[in-house]
């Protein structure tokens, strides 16, 4: 199984590529709503992209209140 660090790295790569933000500007502790300048609708889109990428199912209530990449990575890691 891949490490949490790898998972967070993949999340950051995906977010950078989809939301057109330089990868170097993203770090695990960032608030993704602020860094990516996204609203809840786009956060839902990010969730769907992450589910498709990792081939997992992540109920949205599990990410309720989560706003940083690291915690998001931990939630995903628990499903891998």
């Amino acid at each position: 199984m891949q490490s949490l660090e790898q998972t967070v790295d993949e999340i950051l790569n995906l977010a950078s590529s989809h939301f057109k933000v330089s990868r170097s500007e993203l770090s695990p502790t960032d608030d993704f709503f602020k860094t990516l300048k996204i609203d809840s609708l786009q956060a839902l889109e990010l969730l769907t992209r992450l589910e498709n990428h990792f081939r997992i199912e992540l109920p949205d209530y599990e990410v309720q209140g989560v706003s940083d990449f690291q915690t998001l990575g931990e939630r995903i890691q628990a499903r891998l």
Binding site: D39, S40, Q42, L44, D60, Q64
Partner: peptide, 8 residues
């Protein structure tokens, strides 16, 4: 003011 107020 959120786009989907009833979602997390």
């Amino acid at each position: 003011t959120d786009a989907l107020p009833y979602l997390p």
